[in-house]
Write a protein that binds this DNA or RNA. Structure first.
Lengths: 120, 120
DNA sequence: GGTGTCTATATCGTCACTCGATATAGCGAC
DNA sequence: GTCGCTATATCGAGTGACGATATAGACACC
């Protein structure tokens, strides 16, 4: 068992969801809500409390950062604030993803339903 | 937007960990702690507060039940209380497993393939 | 140009969950 | 018999999640 990413504790679900929703691009807060619902097939609908509270903490922790880049001004909306995942955020997301895969794999050996991941 | 598995909300992480640790067999509380640490490769060490608090809730919710069966009396310890996953628990565990797979799959497409979205 | 609805960000209070500390007691060995 | 380990259980503090609420810009419509 490679103990390479030692010391990293599990992320709060909302933080993980936001990191996944952002992916490799930029998104503004309100769009993240929609993306989270999308990637969870409607199982998770994040309210504004969870969303903006998590964003605040993630900014403080350096997992995401606000970008000054704006899309085509014709499509822009001045109220929006865009965010992107930082290098630390990418690392945390990868660690959490690996953790879940490990969990499902290790537990799968113990259970009758066999988890089968189609994800690297 | 398949609304197929409607109504099932995500499980608290501790509950999911316990369901996975129990697998298809019986375990007593203290052993579950060790199993959780095992299947998470040491990333999650559940303290007694989380463990017994979660067990209490899971019993009330019908996700697990206490068994009267005891192992070989020579190996037994009268203090132990053994638990097994109920049919509802199996269902919840399968749903949660599927949810995670969906999440990783949907988000994986977003990270590895499409670098930018949202600026549509 | 006023009105209404939707988008968008933000905060607050409440409740659920997590975790370590603490308590209690049976077990095994010496 | 007492000492360390196993085992169950509860409590309180701290963090996270969530709905309600507030505020205001965007946009369409008439």
């Amino acid at each position: 068992m490679a103990r390479t990413s030692e010391g990293t504790k599990p992320l709060p679900p909302s933080v993980f969801h936001i990191l996944l929703a952002l992916g490799d691009g930029e998104q503004h807060g309100y769009a993240i809500m929609g993306r989270v619902e999308e990637i969870t097939d409607g199982d998770v609908s994040m309210g504004p409390g969870t969303l903006y509270g998590s964003i605040k903490r993630m900014l403080a922790d350096g997992l995401i950062e606000e970008t000054e880049e704006r899309p085509d001004p014709a499509l822009d909306d001045q109220r929006r604030r865009y965010y992107r995942v930082t290098a630390d955020g990418v690392r945390a997301r990868a660690a959490e993803t690996a953790r879940m895969q490990t969990l499902l794999r290790n537990a799968g050996a113990n259970v009758s339903i066999t988890p089968n991941l189609g994800f690297a």
